[in-house]
């Protein structure tokens, strides 16, 4: 197989190789695996596209992401060859204009691509969707697919904190963030099915998320009360959604399976649950000091009852089901706002 990317001679000894990757700035600071021709070829064998196929152009430096170069980065991350199509699907989603990659890769915000995987291939790909799915479960798919995408942004897109990206804090998920929905425990159609994909499709949804915002409750057994509190918690006063356009962006809410069961009984149709979340995701204008309140009023964000809704419509809430069975937690993935999540089917070779 002929490669277009440059061949570089490096030390084979792990410690020396690691030092070299740091010097070359190929990694995120943690060790990576050598992208040998054998490793890259194994990944390319699972690509539905030829090596020279251009997946897209990745900002900030507008580097050209060929399938081969993506495979080189996937090799660094240790992606299992059969899982390589997940990386390609995620990058395809990121490069959709409405995901706003140029904005999100350069912002002062902590936002990063958060990958949510649906479909029958999750278990085989070791994409975590049960206990510890957002960190700690150690599934190879979750850890390597997310990291491969992050390395592509760094090495192909040139995203480097303090240089090409102005992120103030960053966040741990900037080293990679990928988990699955526990569809089998969801009382509702999966996120991918709700977006028009077949249940048999493997699908990657990329959300521009600012972090993992944990919620907990042990004092209320009523589904509607608990959902009301969850909705209120998403509408925190310094959310990005109160800075920009309320019709842009989505709020992902991950329910543990036990809570999902409770909520599913009360709201069998997820559209009703989304409408209920929207009904309660607001704060009274009095929460904000005068200067903020004046701007919210000026922008028409305050309704006749003095409520300031977090978002424009119920469809901007994206409930999903995942995590362990501890029946007291939910996690919100707040939006950057000026970004629309994108879903792409995982395409495998014919």
């Amino acid at each position: 197989m002929k490669f277009a990317s440059e061949a570089v001679e490096v030390a084979a000894a792990p410690q020396e190789f690691y030092e070299r990757t740091l010097a070359e700035r190929w990694s995120d600071g943690a060790p990576v695996l050598p992208a040998t021709d054998e490793a890259v070829a194994a990944l390319l064998a699972h690509s539905p596209y030829p090596a020279d196929h251009v997946v897209g152009v990745l900002p900030p430096i507008n580097g050209v992401a060929t399938v081969e170069l993506v495979a080189v980065n996937a090799a660094l991350a240790g992606v299992e060859p059969a899982s390589f199509p997940y990386v390609l699907a995620a990058l395809d989603a990121i490069m959709e204009p409405e995901w706003n990659a140029f904005g999100l890769t350069t912002t002062t915000s902590s936002v990063c691509p958060m990958l949510i995987v649906n479909g029958p291939g999750r278990a085989a790909a070791a994409i975590d969707h049960r206990a510890g799915c957002m960190g700690g479960a150690a599934g190879r798919g979750s850890m390597t697919i997310g990291r491969a995408v992050a390395l592509c942004l760094r090495n192909i897109g040139g995203q480097r904190a303090g240089e090409t990206t102005k992120t103030v804090f960053g966040q741990p998920a900037r080293a990679g963030f990928c988990f699955g929905e526990w569809e089998e425990r969801s009382p509702w159609p999966s996120l991918a099915v709700r977006r028009g994909f077949a249940a048999t499709d493997d699908v990657v949804t990329v959300h521009g998320g600012k972090g993992t915002f944990p919620l907990a409750d042990i004092h209320n057994d009523r589904a509607d009360d608990l959902l009301r509190l969850i909705a209120k918690s998403t509408a925190f006063p310094l959310s990005n959604m109160y800075l920009g356009n309320p019709e842009n962006g989505e709020v992902v809410i991950a329910f543990n399976p036990m809570w999902a069961e409770r909520f599913g009984a009360a709201f069998p149709d997820i559209a009703d649950l989304q409408a209920y979340l929207h009904e309660w995701a607001w704060q009274p204008i009095e929460v904000w000091p005068d200067a903020n309140a004046a701007i919210l009023r000026d922008r028409g964000r305050v309704d006749a009852a003095g409520r300031v809704a977090l978002v424009s419509g119920p469809e901007q809430f994206l409930p999903i089901v995942c995590g362990g069975l501890g029946s007291l937690h939910a996690i919100v993935l707040p939006s950057f706002g000026e970004s629309q999540s994108q879903s792409k089917v995982v395409v495998r070779p014919a």
């Binding site: 490669f3 990317s5 440059e6 061949a7 570089v8 001679e9 490096v10 030390a11 084979a12 190789f17 070359e24 700035r25 190929w26 050598p34 992208a35 040998t36 021709d37 890259v40 990745l58 430096i61 580097g63 050209v64 992401a65 081969e68 170069l69 080189v72 980065n73 090799a75 660094l76 390395l151 090495n155 192909i156 897109g157 040139g158």
Partner: peptide, 9 residues
């Protein structure tokens, strides 16, 4: 030594 592919664009 081994040969690897440069990952940067």
């Amino acid at each position: 030594t081994i040969w690897v592919r440069r990952p940067t664009a």
